[in-house]
Design a protein around this nucleic acid. Sequence first.
DNA 1: TTGGTGTATTAAGGGTAATAGTACAGAAGG
DNA 2: CCTTCTGTACTATTACCCTTAATACACCAA
Lengths: 120, 120
Amino acid sequence: MIIIDYKDTRPIYEQIVDKFQQLILRGIIQTDEQMPSVRMLAMELSINPNTIQKAYAELERQGFIYAVKGRGNFVAYSDKLLEGKKEEIRLKLQNIYQEAAEIGISREEFQGYLEDGRMS
Amino acid sequence: MIIIDYKDTRPIYEQIVDKFQQLILRGIIQTDEQMPSVRMLAMELSINPNTIQKAYAELERQGFIYAVKGRGNFVAYSDKLLEGKKEEIRLKLQNIYQEAAEIGISREEFQGYLEDGRMS
DNA sequence: TTGGTGTATTAAGGGTAATAGTACAGAAGG
DNA sequence: CCTTCTGTACTATTACCCTTAATACACCAA
């Protein structure tokens, strides 16, 4: 379900956060479904429980999951999460467009990248 | 010419690299023009010469400048640099589009972000 | 010769990521 | 009640990267 990419320069906990965001937003893990326990997932990925703990704390902070002491972590999906993610993507797109503009790429040329790329 | 943003989480040397890439790609500093000396720029920005040195080494590695011992660093612009930067932007755009697709955003919706944003 | 240039080296500090180990509290089931 | 699972909290340690600091050396030009 989760795979760590050690070639990725981002920290492990961040990769885990992103992966679970995807799984939740795409409905692969559904509302109120139980997340893997901190210790189980740590064992499975051969990393330290503290790292999972950090990822789960972040997911809870962002509203993706909720924790019940003694029972586990559960998915707390709502439409607001999807909207938040969309907004994040809008911002990233803006930043790239700005970066393109800064080196003299016109809006038309930029849009062209999206057209002829036909990105998978 | 160069301003360091201490609120930025990226390392200083990376900010300097990016800034000079822009200045060179936009033609504000032109081919064979002399770069500020390592020591001078360090003084001006109130940072350590080693940090500038690291930025210049990276710029040289990427082909943006060339160094002449005892004389200074000079701009080595060529069209290939602009093409390289465009390719980098294309890749970033692809990654974002893929991220959008992964949470169920259609190509049309994604293109819409570019239209109605009217990004400055 | 003097002063400015790039370059290399070593040492030290600070921050963050990750690991390791321990401890405590709550829930579930026998 | 007891055991075992769960989350949570805390400290210590290791490792890596960024940055500063202080030198030292080689090269070029005036």
